[in-house]
Every structure is written in C-alpha cells, then in structure tokens.
Design a protein around this nucleic acid. Structure first.
Lengths: 198, 198
DNA sequence: CAGCTGACAGATTTCAATATCTGTCACTCC
DNA sequence: GGAGTGACAGATATTGAAATCTGTCAGCTG
C-alpha cells in the first residue's frame, strides 16, 4: 500500500478513506480497512479523526466542496445574468448526472454519505444558493431580473430545480426527455424572474 | 375479525391488507396475516390476487387514487385559473404534509409501497399532471397564462413543486419557513406562466 | 516527548441453522 | 361446480452464537 515512511496526515487518511469507500462501499468500509490501506494501526486514524462518523463527514465535505468549486467558476464568469444562470443550472445538472451515470456504485456510496451528514449537506446547499444569489443579484442590478429578495429567489430556483440535482431523482436522469424537461423548468423559472413585478 | 360469513371479495381483501399494513408495517405484512385477519386460508387470497406484489400494488393504487379524487374536485371548481392553480398546488402540499405529519409510520409504509410500484406511481403522476394541464389550458384560453404547450407547462410546474409533494422531502415539510418557501416557488412559477411569451 | 501501537470492552455485523412465508394444486364441501 | 382448503416445495426471513469493528488508553519506540 502507500509508503508508511511518509508522515500520516489527515489528507492522506481522507484519500485512503475515499479509496476504501470506492472499493468496499459505504456499508462495509471500516476504519480498520482504512488503517490497513495506509499500513498503520487503526488507533493512529483515531488520532486524526475522533470518530468514524467524523471521518465520513470529512470525506463527504471534500466531495461536495469539489462540486461547489467547479460551479463557483461559472458565477465568476462575465456573461449576461440570464445566461450565467442557465449555464450554472446546466452545469449543476450535468455534474450530478455525469457522476451518477459514470460510476453508479460510487454515486450510491456518496448518496448514503450525504444522507447521514445532514449538517454538511445543509452547508453545501447554503453555499450553492449563495452562488445563485450572486447571479440573481447581478441580474437584479442590471434590470434583467425583477426580484425584491434575491436570496429568497435563489432558494426558490434551487428548490424548483431539485429534480435535476437532488440525488433522490438520480434514476430518472437517464430517461429520454429529461433534457427537454430541464429546459422547460428553467425557461419557466427565468420567465418568472424576468417578468416585471406584479 | 370480520365475519367469515360474508363472501370474500377483492374489496374486503384490500381493506384487510390496509389494516395489516397499518399494524405490522410494510416489511412484516404477510399474506398469511391478511388471510388470518379475514378468517380464511391464505390460498383464498391468492384466488383474488395472483401474487403478493399484485395485492400490494392494488392497495397502493387505491391509496393514490383517493388523493387524486380529492384534487379533481378543485379542478372542477370555477375560480380564476391562477387561483385554481394556487389552490390545487396548496391542496396537494397540504394533503401530503398532513398524511406525513399525522401518522408518520403509515406514511413511511406507503412510501415503501410507492417505491416498489413505479408503474402505478407513474400513472398517478400522469393523472395529476393531466389535472394540472386542464387548469393551465383554461388559463391559456382565458388569456391569464401565456403558454404554447399546456401539457409541457403542467409537467414543468409539477416537477418544479416536487419539494412540496414528493415523499423523499417529507422530513422537511415540518421545518419552519416551508410555507414561505412554497409560496415563493408557486409565485415564481405563476409569474412565469403569466408573463407574455418572449 | 510526540506519534504510534496493540490489547481490550462493549457494540455491531456476519453466518448458518431454523422458522416462516409464498405460490401451487389436488382435494373437500356446500 | 366453484369457492375455499391445507399440505407441500422452494424462497425468504429470523435468530442467536461467533466474528469483527469501534473507540480507549497504557505503554512502546525512535
């Protein structure tokens, strides 16, 4: 396995844990397995993570953060707010769909992990709606969107598009016609954001 | 139990099955239990339902149909399309939320049943989006809504409100602020439906 | 001394034997 | 004669004993 000569760092443990999860799945991945993969005793792992739950939580956070970082690039882009919003939602959908379709077992593994780590997921969602808020605020500033509360609008948009990013819908992402459905929902939402206030 | 003098009918079996499911939950409800509750041998149950799966499917269909029937009353109402749509979505949310909050175990039971009966659920969703389509078509006719494809718009509205009727979100229906979230999403969708086509 | 080890207690999981259930069918009994 | 029965084979679920895992900590080691 990995050279035990290197110092044991939290980072290395997280990498080994991802590998063990990939190999054994969420139900059978033990911290003994992680320790074995690193060539150390399991007591050493507990020196860096208080509990198995904390270790799994850290792995979950890493995974979610990677997605959030990719999307942040789009927010920083310099297109029209409407196109930015479209691109952001499409990228979120595409990222999730790709992960789910590419390696269904690994995706199922992370679905289990997110289910048991509500707090981390909550922070991740707050992060994503924060990104959306920035896009919508920009659109409100330029007059493209007419919304009084960009943060509330961002939450509404995020929730309304749940079908295209929430793991509980993963099995429907390969059905024929999802792309049309996605476009229909996004079009409807953007028309709603753009229409002059009642 | 029920008087065994009455003739054994599919209807009576379905009622007994609902009772057994309520008592034992989806995992431990057996057709032997159902037969016992009716005072007959389990062979008799198989005379009316080919398999246990078919029995559970029939129970699921009954349950979903009851909700659909309640909502159909709203579609037949004579308010403004916009208000009809609001009322319909609110009634759907309220019905689901009430069931989930009132008797969480029974709701969990039916969640399991719907998970294993994709076909029946698909038909139920087709039924509901059909109802939505009628409301939206009425709105398109009266000029309240400007949509070119009412059926597609209905599907989009149904999917965009999934957070407020899909069982996978049930645990979030008691969180503070859901009502505001519901209103925000519905308002956004109605603005989208109402805005003049781009 | 700082990081690591490995034995340990209690909790959890596995596994195989045992019990129960599903679905069938030749039969009974109005 | 047609609704209902109950014994049966194969599939599935339950159970409890044995194995493994989690989390701790006194002590080793470099």
């Amino acid at each position: 396995m990995a050279p035990p000569t290197e110092t044991l760092t939290a980072e290395r443990i997280l990498e080994a844990t991802e590998e063990v999860l990939r190999r054994h799945g969420p139900a059978k991945a033990t911290v003994v397995d992680v320790a074995r993969a690193l060539g150390v005793s399991h007591g050493s792992v507990y020196r860096h993570f208080r509990t198995k739950a904390a270790l799994r939580e850290a792995v979950t956070k890493r995974w979610l953060d990677r997605t959030a970082q990719k999307l942040a690039v789009i927010v920083a882009g310099d297109g029209a707010p409407e196109e930015l919003l479209r691109a952001w939602l499409a990228a979120l959908f595409e990222a999730k769909r790709h992960k789910a379709g590419d390696d269904p077992e690994l995706f199922a593994t992370y679905t289990v992990l997110t289910d048991e780590n509500g707090t981390v997921v909550g922070e991740h969602i707050a992060d994503l709606t924060g990104q959306l808020t920035r896009i919508i605020t920009a659109g409100a500033g330029s007059g493209t969107f007419s919304v009084s509360d960009p943060a509330a609008a961002a939450r509404a948009v995020f929730q309304a598009t749940g079908r295209f990013h929430d793991p509980c819908y993963a099995r429907e992402w390969t059905a024929p016609g999802v792309d049309e459905e996605f476009t229909a929902v996004v079009d409807l939402l953007i028309r709603g954001l753009s229409s002059p206030s009642p």
